[in-house]
């Protein structure tokens, strides 16, 4: 097997006295989707920030293609081919599709100080890149990004990352704010990115979405990798229970049933707080 595109070895991160991540070890190969599962506060966001160069780990190392790397700015991570797409697409709602696609790397035509932004070329490339990902509803690069649906915006952001040569795609809860149909769109695009040989790190707490595209799963609980398994090794219920931190939903159900059996079929009273 070839070297993983990105690997974290014994990553620790603490903010002052608070330990947020302990001994994180994960690796992702080309054409593989790693689903990072975890409840709120499990350390998912911190892990993403380390991967995307926002934070530096307190200890441990990041390896790309078996060579140690260190990012001091998000820009360095981007230059290495690590692209992060946030929940709302991280794009500019009041800019046109063509313009927002090329922010920072505007195509130009003309000469010297009279080089002008090549709107036609930008629009054509942006629309083609999105359509190649199967979003055929986008056909006018002059449309404003804010007019797109949540799923389309995600797709645009992913298409943009891939177009600019991303090798590692970090998707931060891309489906959290989306309806069922929109989420399916995004999952299809994740699959497409995987087929193109990208290493995808897919952060979510929706087990269904994770199971639809994931090859490899890591469950994060209170800053540690509590479970690490491959596709088909665990059922949906097992994963959900893991994410809840051992306090399983099945246990809760049993507890309520027992209470009801001993109290003439009444459910337990709700105590505030």
């Amino acid at each position: 097997m070839t070297a993983p595109i990105i690997e974290l070895r014994n990553i620790n991160k603490s903010f002052g006295p608070i330990d947020v991540l302990h001994d994180i070890n994960i690796k992702v190969h080309a054409g593989e989707v790693l689903c990072l599962l975890g409840d709120n506060g499990a350390g998912k966001s911190t892990l993403i920030k380390i991967l995307s160069g926002v934070h530096k780990p307190s200890s441990g190392s990041i390896l790309m293609d078996d060579a140690a790397v260190a990012f001091s700015t998000p820009r360095e991570a981007t230059d290495r081919g690590i692209a992060t797409v946030h929940q709302f697409g991280g794009t500019f709602p009041l800019m046109s599709i063509g313009r927002s696609f090329f922010v920072g790397v505007e195509p130009t035509k003309g000469w010297g100080p009279f080089r002008i932004f090549d709107r036609k070329k930008a629009n054509e490339i942006a629309v083609k890149a999105v359509r190649d990902f199967g979003i055929t509803r986008i056909d006018d690069g002059d449309r404003l990004v804010g007019g797109l649906s949540g799923g389309e915006r995600q797709s645009l952001a992913i298409a943009r990352a891939v177009h600019f040569g991303a090798r590692v795609l970090i998707l931060d809860e891309p489906t959290a704010a989306l309806g069922v149909k929109q989420a399916t769109h995004v999952l299809r695009i994740v699959n497409e990115a995987k087929k193109r040989g990208l290493a995808v790190i897919f952060i979510t707490h929706q087990v269904m979405h994770a199971m639809a595209v994931g090859d490899h799963f890591a469950v994060l609980i209170r800053g540690s990798v509590a479970a690490d398994f491959r596709k088909g090794e665990k059922s949906r219920e097992e994963i959900t229970d893991l994410m809840a931190g051992g306090e399983t939903i099945a246990d809760l159900e049993k507890e309520i049933e027992n209470y009801m059996a001993s109290h003439d079929g009444h459910p337990p009273p709700v105590t505030p707080g």
């Binding site: 998000p74 820009r75 981007t78 991280g90 794009t91 500019f92 709602p93 009041l94 800019m95 313009r99 927002s100 090329f102 922010v103 920072g104 790397v105 505007e106 932004f117």
Partner: peptide
């Protein structure tokens, strides 16, 4: 384009190398 990007989302704009 940069001016609009900065006003739209400063963090994304900086991450895009502006």
């Amino acid at each position: 384009n940069w001016i609009f990007a900065i006003g739209g989302d400063k963090v994304s704009a900086r991450n895009s190398g502006i």
